[in-house]
Amino acid sequence: MTQEIIIAGFGGQGVLSMGKILAYSALMEGKEVSWMPAYGPEQRGGTANVTVIVSDEPISSPILSTYDTAVILNQPSLERFEPLIKPGGTLIYDGYGITLPPTRTDINIYEIDAMDAAAEMGNPKGFNMIVLGGLLKIHPVVQLENVLKGLRKTLPERHHHLIPANEEALRKGMEIIHADKQ
């Protein structure tokens, strides 16, 4: 099995770190993994994206032109990546700030109101973990327990007290993701 995933949104939303946690979690499960960021003058407010490939086989190209799954967190990224999802693939997006929703009918579209949920939970930084929870509900590429292990590995020890809040955010995402109304 191979999942080719693009995660894209604004810089500062935790796009790269969400990808990193997903990649570490897959490593914990003994899977092959690659994490390829769009690097450069990315900054808070600009766009950021990362390609994460999780596979049972060795991974060839870390750079892709089409994706099994796109996790989209802002309008410019939706416009850029919606056409690049493989037919039958998955689009997960947060409707916050989306004025032109996705239109394709040959892919599976899910919405996750992670921005709102994060605000309600009083944990705005947990936004990306809510989204990751949603992704894992739709595509269980890794087990939740391995995500938590991945967090322990990526977070500096002084932040380990935040792991329970992250777990809560992951579970929230699994709960609130839903098929697009259209």
């Binding site: 990193k20 990649a23 490593l27 092959e32 993994v33 690659s34 994490w35 390829m36 960021p37 690097y39 991974i59 870390p62 750079i63």
Partner: peptide
């Protein structure tokens, strides 16, 4: 190059 330098893998 920038691909191999910036990408993470096992």
């Amino acid at each position: 190059d920038g691909v191999i330098g910036q990408m993470m893998e096992k």
